[in-house]
Design a protein around this nucleic acid. Structure first.
Lengths: 237, 237
DNA sequence: TCAATAGTGTCTTTAAGACAATATATA
DNA sequence: TATATATTGTCTTAAAGACACTATTGA
C-alpha cells in the first residue's frame, strides 16, 4: 500500500478519543506577594470551582500547542505574557470524569495588571495570592500543576533571573530581590544578589529612580535573553 | 443542568480528533559512545524510516502517560529503564500528515544490553550511535526530540550524576566520568569529578575492582536518589 | 538630625581548576 | 622495570556569605 492509499483509507474519528487541553499557571508579583491567575468555571465538570485558564485545542484556529495556550491567555488577560515555558503534561484516565484526559501545562510570568472577564466560558477571572490558592479546592488536578510550577520557579530563583518577568517594568533591584526571596522563603544577602546581577549583565538601567521611603532606587528593565541565562552557581540560601 | 445530566448528554466522539502518542528517547553508553534506541517503522507514514519507540495510548490498557511509554519501551527492550523523565510535548498541525498531532516525549536511560524485535508493528530495533543519528533522516520530528533530549542530558552532566543511569552496573568512576565527558564534549579534571562524587555520596562501593590495562578501578552502583540530586555548582568545563 | 532604605567594601569560606605526585595493575 | 591507568595532595582561583560601612532621600 502506498502512503496515498493509506491516507485515503484513514479515518481519524475511528481512532482515539482522548480529551486534550492546554492550561497555564500564570504568575505575577503584586503587593509584595506572588499571585496566580485563576478563572471560575461556568461549565461542568467542576462548575463553580476555580481553576487554571486553558481549554481545548481549536484544531482549525491553533497551529501549535503554544499558540493555543497563548490564545487562551489572551482571551483572559488581553495580553501576551513576556515569559512562557512548557511545564509538564498530565495525562491519565482518572483526572476527568469524562474519560482519559491530557493537559499540556505551561508556566507563564507577567507584570501585574488588573484583568477582567473577556469571554463567557468563565464567570470570573482573578489574581489570587499563591499562598491562599495552595489551600483552596481547585478544579481537576490544577493544584498539583500550580505546586509543580511553583517548585520549578523556585529552582529558577536559585540560578537565573527569570522571576523578574513577574515584575512590571521598570522595577527596582530590591523589588527583584524580593521576588526571589518570596520564592525561596528566605532572605538573600543583597551584596551577593547585586554581584550576580551585575555579572550577568541582564538589566538595562533606565536612568530613572523611584523613591518610596529612604534612598531612591534605580529602575531597570530586563534584557530579553534573561529568559535563557543561567548562573554557574546556585544561591545557597 | 446537574453534572449527571451533563455527562449523560456528553459524547466524547463528538469532540476533538487530535492524534495522541507517547515517544521515548532512550539513551545508553556502549563502546565509549552514547547510543539511542530506534525502531524501523513498518507502517505509514514514514514507512521504512527509523524513529523513536512509542505509539498511541491504549485507553483501556494504560492508566497514565508514563505507564503508556513504559509499556512501549518494554515491548521493544523487555526492560523497564532505571531512569525516565518527561522531556516535552510537541503538538501542532504540521508534524503528521494525518492531521493535528501531539506527542508526549520522555527521556530514558539504561545500561547497555542487546535488544531484538519483540513485536510486529516495527521491522527492526537497534541501538544507533548518537552522532550518526544526528545526521540521519528520521520519522516525524524525532530528530528534534533527540536533539532536545541530548541538550537536556548535557545540562544534567554539569550539575548531577544522572548520566550514570546510562551505564550497566557495576561501573568504574572513570567510566562515569567518560559518559559526562562525551556529553560535554570536553575533558573533565578527574580530581574535580571525584571530589564531587565523594561529596554527593551517591555511589555505593561494591568492593569489587575491574582491571583493564593499568591500575584496577573500583566498581560502584548508583543509589536511587541519584535521580534527584543536584550539585549547587556546575562544572565549568 | 534621624529614620529608612539603597548600595558598597572587604574579609571569610567553599568548591572548582590545574597539575604534580603516588598507587597498583600487566607485560 | 616500564607502561598504563587509577587515585590523591595541594596550590590557585572564582564566586558566594557575612556584615560593617557609606549614600541619599523625606520627615
Amino acid at each position: 500500500m502506498t502512503e496515498a492509499e493509506y491516507l485515503a483509507n484513514y479515518d481519524p474519528k475511528a481512532f482515539k478519543t482522548v480529551l486534550l487541553t492546554v492550561d497555564a499557571v500564570l504568575f505575577t508579583y503584586h503587593d509584595q506577594q506572588l499571585k496566580v491567575l485563576l478563572v471560575q468555571r461556568s461549565n461542568h465538570p467542576f462548575l463553580g470551582f476555580w481553576g487554571l485558564p486553558g481549554g481545548f485545542i481549536d484544531e482549525y484556529c491553533d497551529q501549535s500547542l503554544e499558540e493555543a495556550v497563548l490564545r487562551k491567555l489572551q482571551e483572559k488577560t488581553a495580553i501576551v505574557p513576556p515569559y512562557i515555558e512548557q511545564l509538564c503534561t498530565m495525562g491519565n484516565s482518572r483526572r476527568d470524569v469524562r474519560g482519559w484526559s491530557v493537559t499540556v501545562c505551561y508556566t507563564a510570568l507577567m507584570g501585574y495588571q488588573a484583568c477582567q472577564v473577556q469571554i463567557d466560558s468563565v464567570s470570573d477571572v482573578k489574581w489570587w495570592p499563591l499562598e491562599d490558592v495552595l489551600q483552596m479546592p481547585l478544579a481537576f488536578d490544577h493544584l498539583q500543576l500550580i505546586e509543580q510550577a511553583r517548585e520549578r520557579l523556585t529552582q529558577k530563583a536559585l540560578y537565573s533571573l527569570v522571576p523578574g518577568f513577574a515584575l512590571a517594568e521598570p522595577f527596582t533591584l530590591p523589588e527583584l530581590q524580593h521576588v526571589h526571596e518570596v520564592l525561596l522563603g528566605k532572605p538573600i544577602q543583597s551584596k551577593s544578589f547585586r554581584r550576580r546581577v551585575e555579572q550577568a549583565d541582564l538589566l538595562i538601567d533606565t536612568g530613572l529612580k523611584r523613591t518610596e521611603r529612604g534612598r531612591p532606587a534605580n529602575l531597570y528593565r530586563l534584557k530579553p535573553d534573561t529568559a535563557s541565562y543561567r548562573f554557574l552557581r546556585n544561591l545557597e540560601c
